[in-house]
Computed example of a mutant assay.
Amino acid sequence: MPPLFEFVNLSVIRGDKRVLDRITLSIGEDENVAILGPNGAGKSSLIKAITREYYPVLSEGPVTFDFRGTDTWDVFDLRSFVGIVSNDLQYTFTRTITGREVILSGFFSSIGLFNRVVTPAMEEKTQEIQRFLHIDQLSDRPMNEMSSGEARRFLIGRALVFDPATLILDEPTNSLDLSALHTFRKTLRTIAQSGTGIILVTHQLHDIIPEISRVVMMDGGRICGDGEKTAMLTDEKISRLFSVPVHVREENSWYYATGY
């Protein structure tokens, strides 16, 4: 099968800054990948390049961006293959919209329903997602009255309405306490085990669930490492990536940075 995404020599400039610098990267539909790096590394810019919020600029050599093996595609095709959850999206949805309405809005790529025609099939799919994510008891609660963790699960539900091949999560555990983090990890593992690919963008080693097998490291808008998880999450490589001496500890397929 062709890769879900493939960049060759991709650069993006925002203002006077090159936020992505000659990125070459290919990710398959069935892969579970972590994109790891410090704040300002270009991780979120890479996701915005995938979603076509950021467009490439000409740089040294040819530039290609293929989606499912073709360089000509409609951005709306992304909905059927990629679900996206970000902190920006959560901020947008912090309002008096119920959890149920948030999930239903995914069918229309809207913020709320605004007199949209909701079909019985959409209602059934929404109920199925709520049961899958164990959030049906929160269905009628407004988003601005939920905890960050509860709201995050409804945004994940919104991203799942078209049964995407891959779910992209950009810094998903920001603002979650220990209880919410535990619930979120269980949710993410359930999704990965169901066959949906995961692209997890993070600066935290402990966000990397055991189902993730590949780690892509970013710094300064560039990819500085890409490989199998156990080969990438080492003392030397993590210390170099974050410019601080650390010890990487593995426990039951979870990884933690200590000693800094």
Rank of each mutant, 00 (worst) to 15 (best):
I97D: 01
F114I: 12
T98K: 11
N144F: 00
M146H: 05
Y91Q: 11
G99S: 04
K125F: 07
F93G: 05
Q127P: 00
F81A: 07
L78Q: 08
F93Y: 12
F114S: 14
G99V: 02
R116K: 13
R68K: 14
G83A: 04
W73V: 09
Q130C: 14
Q127I: 01
G112A: 10
V117I: 12
D71I: 02
I129G: 01
G106L: 04
L133S: 06
L89A: 14
I111N: 04
T98H: 09
V117P: 00
V75S: 12
T70E: 05
S148M: 08
Q137R: 13
G106R: 04
E124A: 14
L78P: 13
L89I: 13
E145D: 10
G106N: 05
V82T: 02
P120C: 10
F114E: 14
D88E: 15
R131D: 12
I97S: 00
S86D: 02
F114V: 11
Q127R: 12
F81P: 00
K125T: 14
R79N: 09
D74R: 15
V117A: 10
L78R: 10
L89Q: 15
E124F: 01
D71R: 15
G99P: 00
S139I: 03
S105T: 01
H134G: 07
V82R: 02
V75P: 15
S80N: 14
G69W: 03
E123S: 12
M122D: 10
L104E: 15
D140H: 09
I103A: 07
R68C: 08
T126G: 03
I103D: 05
R141N: 04
G99R: 06
D74N: 15
G83D: 05
S80G: 15
T94W: 05
W73G: 12
S110V: 08
S80E: 14
D136F: 05
K125P: 07
D71G: 10
Q130L: 14
Q137L: 07
V82M: 06
N87Y: 00
I129S: 03
G112T: 09
M143D: 06
E128Q: 13
R131A: 10
